[in-house]
Amino acid sequence: MAKRDQGEHKAAPMVEEVSDFEILELAVRELAIEKGLFTADDHRHFTEFAHSIGPLPAARLVAKAWLDPQFKKLALEDGVAASKEVGIDWLNPTGFGTPSDYTDLRVLEDTPTVKHVVVCTLCSCYPRPILGHSPEWYRTPNYRRRIVRWPRQVLSEFGLQLPENVEIRVEDSNQKCRFMVMPMRPEGTEGWSEEELAAIVTRDCLIGVAVPHPERKQNAARPVHKAVHPVQHDH
């Protein structure tokens, strides 16, 4: 197939059918290129960037901080500097000069009495260079509207129930700061290596809707609940 010949992404798994959506994607892209909105080369750069990012560097950052108090201090004081130590340069994330996002990364440290969870109620601001693309649910109005209003209910839908005395602190990322959560290291991980620890710091832990568990390396599936009562406010 033409698109695979261009080497733009790894070969599709064996779906022996060209869907209308696959055709639409290519048609939109070709028209945009033809109109001069961007070049094929630009697209290749951005696609490579999109392909290369994921939550692993953020997981490594957390694991490293769990093991090294000095690094933890750096991470909490200067997220951008700490990112460099796990291979992420916020000032040049795409490798061709233009920052594709704002670059004030803040790491939010959970404690026994404070649990952070991140949202962007405006759209879907997310620390992409270090955490990859946001999951679909993070982008939905459903999550964005409800987590600020009923955080405990939404967290319980993710399987996370917290006692009354724990302060749930919702961080609404609406300006140029980008946020990731540094959860607490769970019991049962004594003596683990950085790599072993990083494996249990899932994307959902880094957004704050889950907490690490020594036996959990996958994000849980999330049922979607419609907002029954739309939000009202008095301000």
Binding site: T113, V148, P151, R152, E164, N165, V166, E167, I168, R169, V170, E171, D172, S173, N174, Q175, K176, C177
Partner: peptide, 10 residues
């Protein structure tokens, strides 16, 4: 009962 809960934004 969840009087400790907070929200931060910029």
């Amino acid at each position: 009962v969840y009087a400790n809960d907070t929200l931060q934004t910029e």
